[in-house]
């Protein structure tokens, strides 16, 4: 049995639009170990959600497709798996939580029904037992008065509660992998912390590996063990979480870090803190193939080579890889 439960290799997912083919994910690889928490970060539009949807093969077939690459789950290739087998996998061995708890639950079905139908479908237990399981799950995600809540509709619950229901639903069949796509973005800050805490605790209990997709480096720092940084459909850096925060090596990762407010830097005599820096420029359009480094046009370190030749992933040791030609100059410069 391999240590990795999920292995993604050179994944390419493309969409057809009127402007041409969009390469939403362009050659991304990463591994997920059993029981591990992996973060995938990047700005909106960098392809992180599409990566998640690709793993579950939920890319709408009318517009998009997985063009190349391999996704192995427990050693089994998912990109070529039949739709029926895929359906048996979804919600059972790999589950997903979405960003919008407001709209991701069906408004006309009770919460209990929505959890129980998943259990009936995948565990093959009778409806009554599935309702019991649903009740247990609501208890597990710390919804008070679970039995009464089973018969309530989503609109009767608050946003945080709905996300708890989503988590209960996703974990109801003991999945090996839970993919959480921006699970806390739509929630209040205080609720965010509770939900993340809950996910981590449940992970400890169940041993489910988690892929946490977010644009929020703060969330990543608090919850994950390892981080993949994506930019314009590509992986630009991957590192254990401490390494990434102590020594980010890709100029883009550094840019992201400078864009979060910090309290650990002392204010100067005048009481002002250093200004938050934004990354200049815009994410490139993905309809044209990008020959060099996708970040080059916005990068302070870029050279002529960066624009024409794509940098390979460079292993800098201790599980830290980065795709940058100028990594030595970046390392030498101040953060």
């Amino acid at each position: 049995m391999s240590a990795n439960i999920l292995e993604v290799r050179d994944l390419q997912t493309q969409f057809n639009t009127l402007d041409g083919v969009v390469r939403a994910v362009d050659g991304v690889s990463f591994d997920l170990a059993r029981g591990e928490t992996l973060g995938i970060v990047g700005e909106s539009g960098c392809g992180k959600s599409v990566t998640a949807l690709s793993i579950l093969r939920l890319i709408p077939p009318e517009t998009g497709r997985i063009a190349a690459g391999s996704i192995k789950f427990e050693g089994e290739e998912l990109t070529t798996l039949g739709e029926e087998e895929m359906k048996r996998l979804r919600g059972h061995r790999i589950s997903m939580i979405f960003q919008e708890p407001m709209t991701s639950l069906n408004p006309v079905l009770t919460v209990g029904t929505q959890i129980a139908e998943n259990v009936v479908r995948h565990m093959g237990v009778p409806w009554r037992a599935a309702r019991e399981r649903a009740c247990e799950m609501l208890d597990l995600v710390r919804i008070a008065d679970a039995r009464r809540r089973l018969d309530e509709y989503p609109h009767q619950l608050s946003g945080g509660m709905r996300q708890r229901v989503m988590i209960a639903m996703a974990l109801s069949c003991d999945p090996q992998v839970l993919i959480a796509d921006e699970p806390t973005t739509a929630l209040d800050v205080t609720i965010q912390a509770q939900i993340l805490q809950l996910m981590l605790e449940l992970k400890e209990k169940t041993g489910t590996a988690i892929v946490l997709i977010t644009h929020d480096l703060g969330v990543v720092a608090e919850t994950t063990e390892r981080v993949v940084v994506m930019y314009a459909g590509r992986k630009v850096e991957e590192a254990p979480v401490e390494a990434l925060f102590t020594e980010p090596l890709h100029p883009y990762t550094r840019g992201l870090m400078r864009a979060i407010p910090r309290l650990d830097i002392e204010a100067d005599a005048a009481g002002t803190r250093p200004r938050l820096q934004e990354i200049p420029g815009l994410v490139p359009r993905l309809t044209q193939p990008i020959p060099g480094c996708a970040f080059a046009p916005r990068c302070g370190f870029a050279t002529g080579r960066c624009a024409v030749e794509s940098p390979p992933l460079l292993d800098v040791g201790a599980g830290h890889t980065v795709a940058c030609w100028e990594v030595d100059r970046v390392r030498a410069s101040a953060l």
């Binding site: 639009t17 009127l18 402007d19 709408p60 009318e62 517009t63």
Partner: peptide
């Protein structure tokens, strides 16, 4: 799901 493409027509 097929609706997605519609939004791209400007």
């Amino acid at each position: 799901m097929a609706v997605i493409t519609d939004d791209l027509v400007l």
